[in-house]
């Protein structure tokens, strides 16, 4: 996958050739952020039109799963950030351990998410049943599946990317640059969850 990001071998380029990958990843992250910005726009408009239905929808969701996942992702973000620092200072072994921890936490996130999806399916609220709800709730559930689903896909993509980079670090003696851009992608996944969590798990109708 990152073979695609192999840089031009070019003598007249700027000396800091690493900046190609960094810059490419930054621009890509901006693009990804716009994708989610569109979804948050839909959520905002929906919530303005159907405040009560959205509050009910939030209350119906499994708050503990969303909350646990928030802490899981934040911790994984810390792990991968530490891994970059360790690899930069030359301790390849502890960097690899931290990357593995990140990936395990990512899998834990997906496991919890899967449990939640299973629970929704058991309730008959699956993605194919969105149209069966009342209007406001249908919109909420559509956005729920859309946004958490797209986010989960990004988690999976991030895991694959991290796995590939870890393999490169372990067997190809890759430097910290590649790990750094992979870490950035993982942080973006975290950053988006930071907004999804209150919007889908916290902002319910009444205090509890």
């Amino acid at each position: 996958m990152t073979e695609l990001f192999a840089e031009t071998q070019d003598g007249v380029a700027l000396a800091e050739r690493d900046s190609l990958r960094r810059l490419g990843m930054m621009v890509f992250l901006a693009s990804e952020a716009m994708l989610f910005a569109g979804m948050f726009t839909l959520y905002a408009a929906g919530r303005i039109r159907h405040p009560q239905a959205f509050a009910d929808g939030v209350d119906h969701n499994l708050r503990w799963v969303g909350t646990a996942n928030t802490y899981v992702l934040l911790t994984s973000s810390w792990c991968i950030a530490m891994a970059v620092v360790r690899l930069r200072s030359g301790s390849r072994r502890s960097a690899l351990l931290l990357v593995s921890a990140t990936m395990l936490l990512g899998l834990l996130f997906l496991g919890l998410k899967g449990y939640e999806y299973q629970w929704h399916l058991a309730e008959g609220d699956g993605p194919m049943a969105v149209a069966r709800h009342d209007p406001g709730i249908a919109l909420f559930m559509g956005l729920y599946w859309l946004m958490t689903g797209t986010h989960a896909l990004h988690v999976i993509a991030g895991l694959i990317f991290l796995g590939y980079v870890a393999w490169r670090v372990a067997y190809r003696q890759a430097n910290d640059r590649l790990l750094e851009v992979a870490a950035w992608y993982w942080h973006l996944v975290d950053l988006i969850w930071v907004f999804i969590w209150p919007l889908f798990y916290l902002l319910g109708r009444v205090s509890r």
Partner: peptide
């Protein structure tokens, strides 16, 4: 899948 994100009958908004 008749999600209706933009379908007024499902609470959506075509103008969005």
């Amino acid at each position: 899948f008749s999600w209706g994100i933009f379908d007024p009958a499902r609470g959506g908004d075509p103008v969005l």
